[in-house]
């Protein structure tokens, strides 16, 4: 509505008016696409997070497996998404399955790596202190290692989410839906308004998720008593939590 009033008021230049008009006239579809995009992202995280944390924990316990698994996860990330989709289609057909599997594979590196770092680089002294206090291996993991590793894992998830949002857009090409639909349609139909508006929304979505996860990472760090660069928002959150 704001868009409509702005567009009709004649204050905004014609170009921007065009974008706003498009936004206003397609708001239902755009909302639908955003929801689809978020569903793909959440589904992927729902699979990728437990899988990555499990793998990361595994390689922290069995150090010999760390190098090959991290290497493999790294290699996965270099494969162009279009090529990976192409590799999976013969086995999984088109639609969401190949896209979600690809996204899970792409997001493994940051999650596995950060879980590994988080669990292994916990301050030796903190572990030692836990042992001194009479904690067993499991309670040490629960009370010392995991709380300290959490923000690092969260940083990995944040990294993964940005990758997922970006590549999910490309997934629209093989029928997974989401905001990518409008990008491809825009290019096909030479619809500049459609391209610009979708690009802005897609980028905003990526930035917002990046910011949101960044915020939760900082809050987790703050809970552990680490020094954080506090922004106004984190301060407000901290007050609310306190």
């Amino acid at each position: 509505m704001i868009a409509e009033s702005l567009a009709s008021s004649g204050i905004t230049p014609a170009v921007i008016g065009g974008y706003l008009e498009f936004l206003a006239s397609h708001s239902t579809q755009i909302t639908q696409l955003i929801v689809e995009h978020l569903v793909i992202t959440l589904l992927t995280i729902g699979i990728a997070l437990p899988m990555g944390v499990l793998l990361g924990t595994f390689i922290s316990l069995y150090e010999w497996a760390a190098t090959p698994i991290l290497w493999f996860a790294g290699i996965m990330q270099t494969i162009p998404s279009i090529a990976l989709f192409g590799l999976l289609i013969p086995f999984l057909g088109i639609g969401s399955p190949p896209v979600i599997i690809s996204l899970v594979l792409y997001s493994q590196l940051p999650i596995v790596r950060n879980t590994h770092i988080g669990l292994t680089q916990v301050d030796e002294a903190a572990i030692e202190a836990g042992r001194g206090l009479g904690m067993g291996r499991l309670s040490r993991l629960r009370r010392v290692q995991i709380p300290l590793a959490l923000p690092v894992v969260m940083a990995g998830v944040r990294n993964a989410v940005v990758i997922i949002v970006g590549i999910a857009a490309i997934g629209a090409f093989i029928g997974a839906g989401g905001l990518g639909d409008y990008l491809f349609q825009g290019i096909r139909e030479r619809n500049v308004d459609m391209i610009v508006v979708t690009t802005v929304i897609l980028s905003a979505l990526a930035l917002a998720l990046d910011y949101g996860f960044g915020l939760s990472e900082r809050l987790l760090r703050a809970r552990n008593g680490e020094e954080i660069q506090s922004t106004r928002l984190t301060r407000i959150f901290q007050q609310v939590i306190a």
Binding site: I170, G180, S203
Partner: peptide, 17 residues
């Protein structure tokens, strides 16, 4: 750092207009 969170497809699509 912010710009690197913008999806590649978004950049490619924007180049067209």
């Amino acid at each position: 750092n912010v710009a690197q969170t913008i999806p590649t497809l978004a950049i490619i699509a924007l180049v067209y207009p």
